[in-house]
Nucleic acid binder design. Structure first.
Length: 269
DNA sequence: AAAGGGAGCAACCGCACCTTG
DNA sequence: CCAAGGTGCGGTTGCTCCCTT
């Protein structure tokens, strides 16, 4: 049988996109909306694979994309969601407006993973790594766990809200690796979260600002920045209706509502 | 100032799932 | 119901930039 390749390998350009190609793609999508990706390259006059066009659009050209590093709140949300969803980057990205799965995946692999490892926390299981000396971890990782270094991972005390919007489709995969069941944030037995909760009052952490706020009387409370963590159903009603936050979510209305700022940002490409 | 190495990110690849006829 | 096409997703690669020596 065999599947027909998504595009003719011959004559299809690969590698970095030029600004000229970007403009062609943007112009086509603005004019025509996003139709079938396979046909798009020909129609838009691009010598690119349809897949490549889709990727370029979703990961780079989409007007609603945020630029720059993830904020601490976003990073924390990624950690939290990863603890429950695993490497389902698209699902995680769906909870972070303006961020792409690719971006989050990259950020995870290059930043967050290292941070967690440095803290002696397994980035896969989100459990403390104890007594595993041969994993290339710093020798003092146990010390870091006990000293409050690990606290930087942050505490989600707003777990109820987040749990309330857990995607329904991440359960029952049948693989026996249902992350949601044992990484539920409300579960006090979650080693990562309980570890972090125990450390949350350490005033030395550079992440305190967003982890836990301190009232003037010294009592702790959720930092106001925690409010940045979205209560999706309320704050992002549109997103809560979107299983994925992809290009297909932009209909004709979206393109009718493209404003000057978007065009401006594209002009800077 | 130049070379080497590491980090970060954009893009590609291939598989899996969904849709359609 | 099945086969084939279309799309999405996660893993991986490779290029570029920056820092260190």
């Amino acid at each position: 049988m065999g599947r027909q390749p998504c595009c003719d390998k011959l004559g299809v350009k690969k590698g970095p996109w030029t600004s000229e190609e970007d403009k062609k793609l943007i112009n086509f999508i603005i004019t025509n909306g996003q139709c079938c990706w396979r046909a798009l390259p020909k129609l838009a006059g691009l010598r690119r694979c349809g897949k490549s066009c889709r990727l370029r659009w979703t990961n780079y050209l989409r007007p609603d994309l945020k630029r720059g590093l993830l904020s601490q709140a976003e990073e924390q949300l990624v950690i939290d969601l990863h603890s429950r969803l695993g490497n389902r980057w698209s699902k995680i990205a769906a909870r972070l407006p303006g961020r792409t799965d690719n971006e989050i995946k990259n950020h995870w692999n290059t930043h967050i993973k290292k941070k967690l490892l440095k803290m002696g926390i397994d980035p896969i299981t989100h459990e403390p790594i104890i007594g595993k000396e041969d994993q290339g971890l710093p020798n003092d990782h146990d010390h870091m766990i006990n000293s409050g270094e690990a606290k930087r991972v942050a505490v989600i005390s707003a777990s109820d809200e987040i749990n309330s919007c857990s995607p329904p489709d991440h359960v029952g995969s049948g693989s026996g690796t249902d992350e949601s069941s044992h990484h539920d944030l409300t579960d006090v037995h979650d080693p990562l979260m309980s570890c972090l909760s125990a450390l949350e009052n350490d005033p030395t952490s550079s992440w305190d600002l967003f982890l836990v706020g301190h009232d003037e009387d010294g009592s702790t409370k959720n930092n106001t920045n925690m409010n940045v963590l979205p209560i999706w159903d309320e704050s992002f009603p549109l997103l809560s209706d979107c299983e994925d936050f992809g290009v297909h979510d932009f209909g004709i209305d979206f393109f009718n509502n493209i404003d000057g700022n978007m065009i401006e940002s594209w002009n800077h490409l």
